[in-house]
Design a protein around this nucleic acid. Structure first.
Length: 884
RNA sequence: GGGAGCAUAGCUCAGUUGGUUUAGAGCAUCUGCCUUACAAGCAGAGGGUCGGGGGUUCGACUCCCUCUGCUCCCACCA
């Protein structure tokens, strides 16, 4: 069969992926081998593949495929995350398109719509991963809302509640008074909004009565909330207000007396330096109120109108009330002034209504002890972060971790298993039945319908923190004492986690906490952080910017292997990667190179009756050593998770060493056959190279490996053993390097002097040169006569150069531009003299000679002698040139 | 505002306890080649003094300080 000159990925990718699936090569079951486990960071179930996923999953696949070829029982568990906020938002939007308002539906009806949506869009992303070649164990695919996994989440909640770590607490939420719902921080858009800063006079209390003349001026953008004021705060270091310390003030209009408190939170030079504290309607004020034990007076209702607690303007909309109250205060003579002011105001992404910070009861998980344990695991090295710099971030997080608010005002997710009695008391149990039982202990007359389950669901991270455990055995989380099943016992702890640094706290740290709590062990050993994929201009790739290429299109255009290589080329751990299509082009070109090397070898006719040429056996010996040496380098890179370095090492091994040197040397003359020994060696090398490349480029390597020799059905490169180093002789490699540098110089001579490659040239060698390399020189440089000499003095016209420290000379009659050569040599002399001077200065410095380690001094001495030798030879050359 | 990080050839990155590196790679660039595996190729060449300044040291891309620029996370200012 004639092979095309270009590799065609479309023809091979589906074929081999299907073959791998049919043969269940990705599937893993516990056995006696050492396991190697990765759990996928579950992507949003209704998401589509973006460049970040491509990078992340390519790396995981490289690790998994490599582990598999190293004889481990590799298991990569795929799955998806229910992503409550994002998914619910999508479903709500979809319903809105159909003219359906979420609030017109019951919870059950909504959930039905959501499940339909998830069925339709869920898993698209997993199909896309298959295109990439991901070798996930698809039989193990999990979803964070699978019944068993949801149960694990509920059990976990009950467990922590009963342990006393989960409590109900008040917290500010972002309230959307138009949609009548709390929205997440992600759904709040801060807009620079024009408003006014009002300066109000608060009269100082004079024995319980407002003073006639003395007052403090408070600046506020929200005068309609003064009725909710609980205090006025000043900075204790503010010299202007020392007279206010310990005093009280009267709120204008309603004349309620409030204390003056001191706190360094107040910025002295903002506004007037006097801050009104309104715990019910501002997050910072709320915290300040907690600190100073201030009462919370909530004067705004769910619709954004003032309630009866406001005393005045009851029932008015907050913005209407603002206008009215300003006028009232002005009429009372207590408005000092007003200023234009621009400040960021939160708006609801959904309704565009101005967000009202509102206190609400939420569920919290205490973090202190959990965080301590999680910090310890990283500090003591049980878990390694790659790169190491993220330990700082991690530590900072763990040391300042605030309690985790785990409730979300949504429906899509696991509903909180708290059941309220009609009197407001509640019980927490895994099921309604158990809850009823528990509730009856509080009130024996209760019926099931009297119990009302908390409407909120749990934060998505509250399910994904169990992921490394629950994908194997969902029965374990939240149920201490449960014996882990066979899978969990075998695969846990997993080995490596590949994820993004922005979720180091949300996800990574919390998995460590859950692992500690439920398994008494870490969930993984290494965490490899990928960077964010950015475009050429450094912008984060996003749908809204439209700067993200469609990964599927890329794979269709360049092939999955090309895309994988393109992603990996520019991705060192922890650094953002600036993605450009040209990198993928490079990946495709490399595929093509491999393809064509195969075409060459495949086209050879083999004659088993001839012996290898000297050059060929020399090349075989060299490449054998080179291969072992490079394998060691590659392993080092992988061990340190330097995947792009490992890749680049392989790239150069294949392209430069194997194609440009090895194949060129052993390639038989046109029309002639190759000897059997060299051919067999070449096939062996090719086989090893393909195996080394396979984790990075699974498709093309399988295709070529299958064709390289006869294969039986059911054989695959995937399950072959990774080639190992057999040790190497570094003199063999050094000799070849010397020869190749001589060859490069000879090519340079040819090119600069315009000598055709077909024309033979002679070579004079002055010094030691490995004899067994002469055949290589002859073949690659088309040499005529090679002669040795001890001195290059009194030579006729020609060019000399150095290969390593060996001087070489090519006689050339009448082909030289003497002037040009002299100039070249002279500039070389200047360069070396300068260098020598520097080295000599160093060596004559007593402090250097005395303090520097011997080896360092030795290298300086060698530098000196080498440079002196070079200078000498250059000067000889110059003298000869000048004679002509 | 709090915390963390980054800054090395045109671009993307290495440079691993300060000294065998007169700073490396890939891509891009330039020159010459349609050489019978590959022009998505072959051969060769040029290009940076390591963001600015200061310090420690016999010696600093590598350690310390400072300035500048960029990025990320968190909190968002009455």
């Amino acid at each position: 069969m004639e092979l095309s000159a270009k590799y065609n990925p479309a023809e091979v990718e589906d074929k081999w992926y299907g073959y791998w699936l049919r043969n269940k090569f990705f599937h893993s079951e516990p056995d006696e081998r050492e396991p190697y486990t990765i759990v996928i960071p579950p992507p949003n179930v209704t998401g589509v593949l973006h460049m970040g996923h491509m990078l992340n999953n390519t790396i995981q696949d490289v690790l998994v495929r490599r582990a598999r070829m190293n004889g481990k029982n590799a298991c990569w568990v795929p799955g998806t995350d229910h992503a409550s906020i994002a998914t619910e938002a999508k479903v709500v939007a979809k319903l809105a398109e159909q003219g359906i308002d979420k609030h017109s539906l019951t919870r059950e009806q909504f959930m039905e719509h959501a499940w339909v949506w998830r069925k339709k869009h869920g898993g698209i992303i997993l199909e896309q991963l298959k295109k990439l070649g991901a070798s996930c164990d698809w039989d193990r695919t999990r979803f964070t809302m699978d019944p068993a996994l949801s149960e694990a989440v509920i059990n976990t909640f009950v467990y922590f509640y009963k342990k006393g770590l989960i409590y109900r607490g008040v917290r500010m939420v972002n309230w959307d008074p138009k949609s009548l719902t709390a929205v997440s921080d992600e759904e709040v858009i801060h807009k620079e909004t024009k408003s006014k800063l009002y300066y109000l006079r608060y009269m100082i209390s004079d024995n319980g009565k407002p003073s006639e003349t003395e007052y403090a001026v408070i600046a506020t953008t929200r005068p309609e909330t003064i009725m909710a004021d609980a205090a006025v705060c000043i900075n204790p270091n503010d010299p202007r207000y020392t007279h206010l310390k310990g005093k009280k003030l009267f709120i204008p209009l309603i004349n309620r007396e409030i204390p003056i408190i001191e706190d360094e939170y107040v910025t002295i030079d903002f506004g007037t330096g006097c801050l009104k504290v309104t715990p019910a309607h501002d997050v910072n004020d709320y915290n300040l109120g907690l600190k100073h034990n201030l009462p919370v007076i909530d004067i705004i209702d769910d619709h954004g109108c003032l309630n009866e607690k406001a005393v005045i303007l009851v029932g008015e909309d907050r913005f209407v009330a603002r206008k009215k109250i300003v006028k009232m205060i002005a009429d009372a003579g207590q408005l000092e002034k007003e200023e234009d002011y621009i400040s960021p105001v939160g708006h609801s992404e959904r309704s565009d209504a101005v967000i009202e910070p509102k206190l609400s009861l939420q569920w919290f998980l205490k973090m202190e002890d959990l965080a301590k344990g999680a910090l310890e695991r990283v500090e003591n090295g049980d878990i390694k972060l790659i790169p190491d710099k993220f330990r700082n971030t991690y530590r900072h997080w763990m040391e300042t971790a605030r309690d985790w608010c785990i409730s979300r005002q949504l429906w899509w997710g696991q509903q909180i298993p708290a059941y309220y009695l009609p009197d407001g008391r509640f019980v927490v149990e895994a099921t309604r039945e158990e809850a009823l039982e528990a509730a009856r202990k509080l009130d024996p007359t209760l019926k099931e319908e009297d119990l009302r389950q908390d409407p909120d669901v749990l934060d998505t991270w509250f399910s994904s923190w169990l992921w490394p455990i629950s994908v194997f055995d969902p029965a374990v989380p939240g149920r201490p004492g449960t014996i882990p099943n066979k899978d969990l016992a075998y695969y846990y702890p997993t080995n490596d986690l590949v994820t993004a640094p922005e979720i180091i706290f949300f996800w990574v740290a919390r998995m460590v906490m859950a692992g500690n709590e439920f398994m008494g062990n870490v969930p993984f050993r290494n965490v490899y952080f990928t960077g964010i994929v950015r475009d050429k201009l450094g912008r984060k790739m996003s749908k809204s910017l439209g700067n993200s290429p469609d990964p599927i299109m890329l794979m269709e255009k360049y092939g999955a292997d090309g895309v994988r290589l393109g992603m990996l080329l520019c991705s060192s751990a922890g650094n953002d990667i600036l993605f450009d299509e040209s990198q993928v082009e490079q990946g495709r070109n490399f595929c093509n190179k491999i393809w064509n090397a195969y075409r060459l070898v495949r086209g050879w006719e083999v004659d088993r009756n001839t012996e290898p040429s000297e050059a060929a056996s020399c090349a075989v010996r060299w490449f054998d050593n080179k291969l072992s040496q490079t394998i060691e380098t590659i392993e080092e890179h992988y061990d340190k998770f330097r995947i792009s370095d490992a890749l680049m090492t392989l790239y150069k091994l294949f392209w430069d060493d194997f194609c440009a040197w090895y194949l060129e040397i052993v390639k038989p003359e046109y029309g002639k056959p190759i000897d059997g020994k060299t051919f067999d060696a070449t096939i062996t090398f090719f086989d090893k190279l393909l195996k080394l490349l396979h984790p990075i480029m699974p498709f093309i390597t399988e295709e070529l490996w299958q064709n390289l020799s006869e294969r039986k059905d059911g054989e695959t490169i995937m399950l072959e053993r990774m080639p190992k180093s057999q040790g190497y002789d570094s003199t063999v490699i050094a000799d070849f390097t010397l020869a190749s540098s001589a060859i490069a110089s000879l090519r340079n001579v040819r090119q600069s002097k315009g000598i055709s490659p077909k024309e033979k040239i002679d070579l004079v060698i002055c010094g030691e040169f490995p004899e067994n390399m002469l055949c290589v020189l002859t073949k690659m440089s088309n040499l005529g006569e090679i002669s040795f000499t001890t001195s290059l003095d009194n030579r006729e016209a020609g060019v000399s150069f150095l290969a390593g420290t060996v001087q070489m000379f090519v006689p050339l009659q009448g082909l030289l531009n003497v002037e040009e050569e002299i100039a070249k040599v002279e500039s070389e002399i200047v360069r070396y003299e300068k260098f020598l001077k520097g080295v000599e200065a160093k060596l004559s410095n007593e402090k250097f000679v005395n303090n520097a380690p011997e080896a360092v001094v030795k290298t300086e001495l060698k530098k000196k002698s080498d440079a002196t030798a070079k200078l000498e030879s250059l000067k000889t050359t110059l003298a000869q040139l000048k004679k002509q």
